[in-house]
Nucleic acid binder design. Structure first.
Lengths: 136, 136
DNA sequence: TAGTGCTAGTCTCTTTTTGATACCAACAAT
DNA sequence: ATTGTTGGTATCAAAAAGAGACTAGCACTA
């Protein structure tokens, strides 16, 4: 069934058949390399919930550095997933909110996050098994 | 609707509410940090199609280094998404194939890949718009 | 009025991660 | 005898990420 999806895409002549998997030709890689970052999905999950300000996001994800928060937000904004709005308050505040494109991406993405939550135990079990065996 | 999913998960008392988003407590981060790598999804996509040998994967993804291929495959194996089998041929060959857990993960994941293929144009357009504006 | 804190970042330095290249041993074919 | 193939590892350079100090303008406080 999963394979069916793959074959359908490949038979449809869409990109990323085994001949064009190199970067620059493959749209899937072009898009995924950005949302596959360590912090991207986390910030998308937060902003899918509701808009947040810079400092709120920083407190929400305690172990992100300001440097990476700035950079990841800018990358997500550049790819069109989130918007940035500056309010001229004192001190000025900046709000980040998800765009329609971002919501459209988050719909399938949220299912992966859901899977992660549901199958965490299986993954942890696999790790223990692997570490206890030969290669640990 | 996406938000509905989020709220459902949060209301269900599952992890990753805003109090436990730090690493070590959050299963979603624990799982996603592994499959969010640059090469993981690509290899999962290949192995979802059919089993491959080390060298085949290397040729399939021309710009991965042997070092990262080894490491990524080992990480995916450790988390239980793929299996590694050594055949005592001369020279010995090693086959990697997806596990049931891997297929279960790839089901939602493939929808994100599909989204990426379908919405590549929108993302590229957003990038051009961003780069042409103030911050380019 | 001087001190402290808040805002959203940037700048610099160090550590970690990744990439490029060379190398391995055993066997097959030329 | 040289070359090619297998699936890696070892080493070093380059890129990315993390830690912390620093900024400016204003508010509050002592």
């Amino acid at each position: 069934m999963v394979i069916h999806l793959m074959e359908k895409r490949m038979l449809a002549g869409q990109e990323c058949d085994t001949q064009t998997w190199d970067m620059g030709n493959c749209p899937v890689r072009d898009v995924l390399d950005r949302i596959a970052g360590k912090w991207s999905t986390l910030l998308l999950e937060a902003l899918a919930h509701k808009p947040y300000r810079f400092g709120e996001l920083r407190r929400l994800v305690p172990d992100i550095s300001q440097r990476m928060l700035t950079q990841t937000l800018r990358d997500l904004q550049r790819d069109g997933y989130i918007e940035r709005e500056v309010f001229p308050t004192k001190p000025p505040s900046v709000e980040y909110r998800m765009t329609e494109l971002g919501r459209s991406l988050f719909e399938p993405l949220s299912k992966v996050l859901l899977w992660a939550g549901e199958n965490h135990a299986s993954v942890k079990a696999a790790r223990v098994k692997f570490d206890d065996s030969d290669l640990g």
